[in-house]
Nucleic acid binder design. Sequence first.
DNA 1: CTATTTATGTGAAAAAGTGTACATTAACTC
DNA 2: GAGTTAATGTACACTTTTTCACATAAATAG
Lengths: 211, 211
Amino acid sequence: MNNDQLIRITRYYRSLNRLKTIGLEKVFAHNLADAAGVSAAIVRKDFSQLGIHGQKRGGYEIHDLLVSLGEILGKGDSQNCIIIGCGRIGKALMHYNGFEPDGIRIVAGFDSDPLVYSDASHPVPIYPISRIDEVVEALQVTAGIITVPEQAASDSYERLLKAGVMGILNFSPITLKPQATEDGKMPVVHNINIALELEQIFYELKFPKVK
Amino acid sequence: MNNDQLIRITRYYRSLNRLKTIGLEKVFAHNLADAAGVSAAIVRKDFSQLGIHGQKRGGYEIHDLLVSLGEILGKGDSQNCIIIGCGRIGKALMHYNGFEPDGIRIVAGFDSDPLVYSDASHPVPIYPISRIDEVVEALQVTAGIITVPEQAASDSYERLLKAGVMGILNFSPITLKPQATEDGKMPVVHNINIALELEQIFYELKFPKVK
DNA sequence: CTATTTATGTGAAAAAGTGTACATTAACTC
DNA sequence: GAGTTAATGTACACTTTTTCACATAAATAG
């Protein structure tokens, strides 16, 4: 499955959940297309490729779709995250409760500042960065969120990889590039650069697409 | 200019700034390719399309490149932002100092809670959401960052558009879709969905690309 | 029961994006 | 100053992604 397709599928999944809570039972390719911002043909082709079939004229059963897509997306597996860097953004993410519906759990935070990691007034425990290996092992952590300042980003990245955390969501302005580890495994890195997003927005405002 | 290209250009721009501070004066397509995670041919093609020319064997002058790309990216224009929703994430963004180097300024926050907007202990003033039109006008705001809970996202979006803010960076889990306003203008919307990113990471970990 | 409508499923065409190869030019070497 | 090396610039081929068009099946209507 390619990257764009994966994004679309996670979007379908979310939209379906929302439609389900509204009480709908069936959905048409066109609906999901609207929700995900793509064309209906793509939705059908995506499902077709994944072996998901609807009923001619009847559309797709939301429940079945959710089950199928859920399996594909690995719902039900343990999806435990840690946060490296418990500054304002790190703490904000700890308190964010929008992860639970997706089965994602923030299980610990890490910081280099004793004042921070001795503070127990947070939803999850914060440890000194030196204890990362031990905690990752104990809590079965599979992904880490990097919310440290620019100059500490590479170090955090390396520590995560060394601890065996192969999924990385990086909020620092450095673009981290995945590189195979010694044992041949390839980390999965997503970089979110807020300043970059804003820059792009300003650009697009300045030079609107004519299309 | 297409979207992917725009992302690459902002990346080139950042890398160039970094290289410049290190003291370099020239750069080769290959360097920028590494920095932006693309091939050298693409870098050359990008520049070629933009009318930027290097010297055979000599590469590109960093200074000239920065000027050219800076013009393209609209550096020097006022890039004023407001934050809608001053919860933990909104406040974290207010305190974030990674915007300045890019000429982006957070100039105000908005919230619906009197306890929040009467609190003056923040880097920028926080106003009640009802005053958005007035503030946008006075401070020449061109972009807004939405960091409100899911159920308030659409409302915030509409208020921004109504106030004439056409650039939107949305952190709420709702995917906001740009739709032409009454006067025919098309807003620019970027959605950042953290849970979605994590989901994708977990998926990619589960089903590594063979490639 | 036949005709019509509506939505899926998919092959083929079109479009977009990327990589390859090589001609071209500039600098350096001897 | 001839030869070699290093990097740009671009035509062309290749791959990937999207759209188009239409055959197909199910439901509905008369």
